[in-house]
Write a protein that binds this DNA or RNA. Structure first.
Lengths: 352, 352
DNA sequence: CTGAAAGCGCTTACAG
DNA sequence: CTGAAAGCGCTTACAG
């Protein structure tokens, strides 16, 4: 039951180099104030012994805090989707703050790219040790990750991914598959000669999520030889009035629309429109476990909600950065979340 | 940059209870030799302060080793598939043995259920703190996991999963999807009026893997309205002679067989048969990055190999148990590995 | 039944 | 440029 003592620590290095462990520590951390000669001697011994620091001891002794930047959208009055990841983030924080981990939140406004830029700059100057972020603006996020990479700042994405990013960890849904599932759900209420409407409500309509989700959605129809025509509209102004206006128009143009798929959590505005206009015969599928969405699910306006455990994404995101930073342990490149299907029948038991 | 000292440790508990930290430690670990009175007093304070132990410090101070049982098939002369997970396991071991983690290997024989039983018993009596295993024998594994659960032994599965097991972690492929991918690859060389043969070479033909893989495989054909007839054979004796005999018979019966899918790494014996009988026009898809398989891939007998990074499965399996045991950190219930596609063209660059 | 002291492998002031 | 000493929050003999 005894620990084998085949491992050499700073003590042994110090003994061999005939210096104190403080000097060994200085060399280990590239601190100044060590003569080139002793530095070389110590480095040689470090190599010879293949010294591996004990990170547990290091963390315990260190007074330094590990700072993680949390870089996600601010909860807006329109949708409180981002509440859930934040809850998970806070839960992780409370579990690991005793190990000296501190979170700094940097919120940006989904309707304002400039706010993203500003916060990104703040993060780069803040001296944090890692970043948990939602790459809502693809181009901007890509550039930011590049900047982080230059100063060796590990980055973890949640909620959505960005194509061809190396050196990051992604925790979120397989977006394409998620859209595929959406289409599958859609077909439960779809007749073969009717049209399907894909609605994309977002300031950032070219967002990678939405493109991936829509491709998955369309792909299902192709794979299963569903001949339904798929129409799509982008709604850049996310307020209810704008949504109503766009929907009125498209439904007028295409009388045969029998089902609507909304690519994000704003499905409730479509639901509201359908309710107000008594268009309750149209099937509706969308995203996320928001209170408003659940209400429409209960009143049969929304047929299905898809959800990717946003709270757990936040929790895992922080934990994964913590493990990476503190324990130097394996970095998982991609962790796909489940694609959960929520209906009126099972919503009461859903775990975010 | 300073650590906030809002956390109470054993010292504070001892101060409040007016005892020494040794006594606090005794209570914390339910050790004997503490009067009921002081025990109660200390426990009350622990509750009041909502004391959370610092696991980093605990590990550092402890002389106790964490023992993990590695319960996987022995590498057989027939196939060295299990070499790869073992390599990953050893790599993980060398990374974490400095933190007092020790691995005990318990190999069983894939052709001998009794050997599984024997080793399972040994593990349960060995006092290990966690188990990494391959549930090759479904029923036996299920029972073993039940026994582990009783003594609160965490278990992680690699390579294949077992249905309806709670309280375990699974690290391996999405078997159904893997079969689906296999079918997709198959179709590249398949004409619509020909037959497909599914070959299952294993002592344990009712193994959950194979059933799932085959279901995924068949599912692809259904989803894509491929009308090809799918024939299947089980080969329980895994030697080359037996394989040749079975294949001769089935190919004689069904002249139109144009493609063969082997549900595990033993695809090389089918390849050997095809080569020896000059049946090289038959497409062949199977599993795993074994030297023999790669040779047949190079000589165009095997068209595709599917691989699920077995080495990484072993590595991750150990690391996940370590994190669970040492750090009490999040237990991930399922981690799906990638379904890698290996061809003659890319095999040289494959990372197991 | 209880406590004082040493120690795990590091880091951090502080002194020189 | 270098070292002695205290300390991180625990665990472990050992002594009484």
């Amino acid at each position: 039951m005894e620990k084998e003592n085949t491992y050499f620590g700073v003590k042994e290095i110090a003994r061999r180099a005939k210096v104190s462990i403080a000097t060994v520590d200085r060399v280990l951390h590239n601190r100044t104030g060590v003569s080139e000669k002793t530095k070389k001697k110590i480095n040689d011994i470090i190599k010879e012994l293949d010294y591996q620091p004990n990170i547990l001891a290091s963390r315990l002794a260190s007074k330094k805090t590990i700072n993680i930047a949390v870089f996600i959208p601010r909860v807006s009055p329109e949708t409180d989707f981002w509440d859930a990841p934040l809850r998970g983030i806070r839960r992780a924080e409370s579990e690991i703050k005793k190990y000296g981990v501190k979170l700094n939140t940097f919120f940006f406004d989904l309707n304002d790219k400039e706010s993203f830029h500003k916060q990104a700059k703040l993060i780069l100057d803040s001296g944090v040790n890692g970043v948990l972020m939602a790459p809502s603006f693809v181009e901007e996020a890509t550039q930011f990750v590049g900047d982080c990479h230059k100063i060796k700042l590990p980055v973890t994405f949640i909620d959505s991914n960005v194509p061809e990013q190396t050196n990051i960890t992604y925790i979120g849904p397989h977006l394409f598959r998620s859209g595929y599932v959406g289409a599958k759900l859609m077909t439960y209420r779809l007749k073969s000669d009717r049209k399907v409407l894909v609605v994309n409500i977002s300031t950032e309509t070219d967002n990678y999520n939405y493109i991936q989700i829509e491709e998955g959605f369309r792909s299902y129809f192709r794979d299963h030889d569903q001949a339904n025509e798929i129409i799509r509209i982008d709604i850049k102004d996310t307020d209810q009035l704008s949504v109503a206006k766009h929907l009125t128009k498209v439904i007028h143009q295409h009388q045969e629309i029998e089902a609507i798929f909304v690519t994000n959590s704003r499905v409730f505005s479509v639901a509201r429109f359908l309710q107000e206009n008594n268009l309750t015969n149209i099937a509706l599928v969308g995203y996320d476990f928001l209170k408003e969405n659940i209400d429409f699910l209960k009143s049969n306006i929304i047929d299905f909600l898809i959800c990717h455990k946003p709270e757990e994404q936040g929790y895992r995101g922080i934990m994964s950065l913590y493990q990476n930073l503190v324990l130097g342990s394996l970095v998982e490149k991609v962790h796909f979340m489940p694609i959960d299907i929520i209906t009126k029948e099972n919503e009461a038991f859903y775990q975010n």
